[in-house]
């Protein structure tokens, strides 16, 4: 992660951001292209009010302050912050949202997220991930480290599985999450729906090719087991 925003420079090989090797750019220059959300929002938050915190990046990068004020107002509305709140008195989830907002407001083409949902409850997690999804839909490249396979399954398009510092597998999310060798090598527990459909594949050869044994999401599973969509009768399942 730190290689992408230049906090670490590669010893060998190169990391390209917008086609430019990170070794050719200062970290402050990379900050205009890559936003980095740290796992712990308290490492990032350093100002006395929410507004100041959101403006901090513009000051650091010496950007146009008129434009900054407009963007900060938009973000405050979008995230539902009180601009005069003291960031250090907000709860953990809101501090995480503020840290994310202070990255989003800079409108960098790439954002790197280090476990953005750690310590958040379900509602906060969904809120954070929805914002990240919206950013991606608007063209932002999102790179995220995550250990929660449910979140990965719900939001990631492509995954790289790492274990003991090595890449174990990579590819489209469900191709990887359905690969038993990968799951075993990286000691991963797939999302529940994938787990169930993989178990169904193993239970009965007659089910192996059915839609229900290839469902990756709740919607796919539901569609597969509805009477008119069910291709294989359940009598064959020995349980």
């Amino acid at each position: 992660m730190r290689l992408v925003n230049g906090l670490l420079k590669p010893d060998e090989g190169e990391v390209l951001v917008d086609g430019v090797p990170t070794t050719q750019l200062k970290t402050s220059e990379l900050a205009r292209r890559v936003g980095f959300l740290f796992q712990n929002p308290d490492s990032q938050i350093c100002c006395n009010t929410v507004r100041e915190e959101l403006l901090f990046g513009f000051h650091a990068l010496k950007m146009d302050m008129d434009d900054a004020a407009r963007r900060v107002d938009d973000i405050i509305d979008e995230f539902g912050f009180n601009p005069e709140d003291d960031p250090f008195l907000l709860n953990r989830g809101t501090r995480q949202l503020l840290a994310l907002a202070s990255i989003v407001v800079l409108e960098t083409p790439v954002i790197v997220l280090d476990e953005p949902t750690t310590g958040l409850d379900f509602r906060e997690c969904v809120k954070v991930m929805s914002i990240i999804r919206r950013l991606h839909e608007h063209g932002t490249t999102v790179i995220m480290v995550c250990h929660d396979m449910e979140v990965v399954a719900d939001f990631a398009e492509r995954v790289i599985v790492m274990s003991d510092g090595l890449v174990v597998d990579q590819g489209p999310t469900f191709e990887v999450l359905r690969n038993r060798h990968t799951l075993e090598a990286a000691d991963l527990v797939p999302p529940q729906i994938v787990d169930i459909s993989l178990a169904l594949q193993l239970m009965s050869p007659t089910l192996a090719d059915s839609a229900v044994a290839h469902a990756n999401t709740l919607a796919e599973m539901r569609a597969a087991i509805e009477p008119n969509a069910l291709a294989v009768p359940f009598e064959g399942v020995d349980r």
Binding site: L7, T27, A31, F38, S43
Partner: peptide, 12 residues
């Protein structure tokens, strides 16, 4: 960690 976070935000 704090210095890294601020460096990543563009502080030189």
């Amino acid at each position: 960690g704090i210095m890294e976070a601020q460096t990543a935000r563009g502080v030189e």
